[in-house]
Write a protein that binds this DNA or RNA. Structure first.
Lengths: 221, 221
DNA sequence: CGCTGCTTTTACACTTTCTTAACGCCATGG
DNA sequence: CCATGGCGTTAAGAAAGTGTAAAAGCAGCG
C-alpha cells in the first residue's frame, strides 16, 4: 500500500484529500505546517507528497527545497490560480506536477498515478509512452513500431518530454536540456520544433499539450 | 593463441593468475590500475579480461563501463565475498561471469572456457547482411560470394555497421569501436572511409544510409 | 632510397537542419 | 470592443553536417 503525505494548512482541504486518497487505498498522514511536514516526511517516508504552496510560516517552495535535499519522493503541488511564477519555480526545483485549486478528484488521482509510475521506469535505454517508443541507445524513435524520422534537436526535445511523460516540463527546463551550453531566447525557436514534432507524431501517438506561460506536457493519447 | 588481460592491484594475485593462464597457453598482459587496464585493452585487444572489482583509483565497475563502450570482449569478474550488490551491477553492465576470491584454478579455468565459448557461439564468426558476408575469423569480406577487398579500417567499420544492421549506429559508437583509444576527432576521416565502403559495395549489396547529425545505418538492399 | 598501399588531411560543392522573423489566431482583461 | 501576450504556423536565410576528390603523411619493403 502506498503512503501519502498531505502538507496543507486548511483543515477542510486536508479532510477532502484524505477521503479521496483513502478511498483509493492510500495510507494517509497529514501536516498543517511546513516544518512539521518535513518531520513527517522523514519519519513516515511517504511514497508521494501533496504540498500546498500557500503555507503560513515556511513557504511551500522552501519546504520543497529542503525536502529535495535528501529525498526523491514524488511531489504534487497544490496551488491556487495566478501563482504562475511560483508554480514554475516549484517545478524547476523538483516538483513533479501540480493541480490548481479547486480541482476534481479524477484529475488529482490521474496525476498521482502518473508521477508515481514515472519514478520506477527511470533511466532505461528505452522510453515508452503509449504508441511512442524512444530508443536512446540508437537514437531511434518509433510510433506503433513504425520508424519515426526525427532530427537531432527534435529527438532531444521529445526525449525531455517523454522522460517526464504526463508531467509538465517548464520552458526553462527544456531550454537547459536541449540547448545546453548555448543560451538563447527563452522560447523563440522552441515553438517551431514543437510544431514539427506534433506534425510528425500526428494523431497516432501522445499529444504535446501546452500549458500557457509554463511549458509543455506529453500526454498519452 | 588467446590473449588474456589481468586487471588487479595485488601483485601476488597477478602472478598467480599469470601462472595459471600461461600454463593453459594464454598470452598474458597485466595492469595494476584501472586506467592502465583500459589502455592495455585498447592496445592489445585481448580475447578475455580478468577484472578485479576492488581496484584503487578507478572503480572496477567504472572500468567495465568504459570498456563496454567500445568492446565486447568477455570479462570475468574477480570479487571478494559479500560484494553481492556490486557483482549484480557488474553483470548488468555486461560482465560475463564472476569468481569469488579465493578460488580454485579448476573453477577459474572452467569459467574462462565457458564465457569464451559463449561469446564465440553467440556472435557467430560470420555476419551476413543480404548479399554481404563478413568472415570475422579470417577478416575477409565477400559480396555475392565474390571476394571483396577491404582495408583493416574499412573492415572494422563495416563490421560495426553490420553487427547492428538495420539500426542506427551513432558516430560516437563508431569512433569508439573502430578508433578505440586513439584519435578523438568526432568524424573527420570517418566520412572518407564511408565513401570508400560505399564505392566498393556498389549497388549489389546493402546500402550505408546516413542519418544527419546522428550516425549511419546499414540497410539491406 | 623510392616504391606501394593505407590512412589522414584538406578543400569545396551540396544537402539537411536550425534559427530567425513575420503573421494570424485565440484567450484574457481593461 | 480593442489591446495585449502567448502560441501555432509558415517561409527564407544562416548554420551545421555530409559526399567527394585529390593531395599529403606514414608505415613496411624491396
Amino acid at each position: 500500500m502506498s503512503k501519502a503525505l498531505i502538507i496543507d494548512d486548511e483543515q477542510q482541504m486536508r479532510r477532502l484529500l484524505r477521503m479521496v486518497l483513502e478511498s483509493r487505498g492510500y495510507e494517509v498522514c497529514e501536516a498543517a505546517e511546513g516544518q512539521l511536514g518535513l518531520q513527517e516526511a522523514a519519519f513516515h517516508r511517504p511514497d508521494v507528497v501533496l504540498l500546498d504552496l500557500g503555507l503560513p510560516g515556511m513557504n511551500g517552495i522552501e519546504v520543497l527545497k529542503r525536502l529535495r535535499e535528501w529525498s526523491d519522493v514524488p511531489v504534487l503541488i497544490l496551488s491556487v490560480r495566478d501563482q504562475e511564477t511560483i508554480k514554475v519555480e516549484a517545478l524547476e526545483i523538483g516538483a513533479d506536477d501540480y493541480v490548481t485549486k479547486p480541482f476534481g478528484t479524477a484529475e488529482l488521482l490521474a496525476r498521482l498515478t502518473v508521477i508515481q509510475r514515472r519514478r520506477f521506469t527511470r533511466q532505461s535505454a528505452e522510453i515508452v509512452v503509449g504508441a511512442l517508443k524512444l530508443d536512446l541507445l540508437h537514437h531511434e524513435a518509433s510510433l506503433d513500431d513504425a520508424p519515426l524520422k526525427l532530427t537531432p534537436t527534435e529527438f532531444a526535445l521529445l526525449k525531455v518530454l517523454a522522460e517526464h511523460a504526463g508531467r509538465i516540463v517548464t520552458q526553462n527546463q527544456i531550454m537547459k536540456q536541449v540547448w545546453a551550453g548555448q543560451s538563447s531566447d527563452p522560447s523563440e525557436g522552441l515553438r517551431v520544433h514543437i510544431n514539427h514534432l506534433r506534425k510528425k507524431i500526428g494523431d497516432a501517438g501522445p499529444r504535446i499539450v501546452n500549458e500557457p506561460g509554463i511549458g509543455y506536457r506529453l500526454e498519452e493519447a
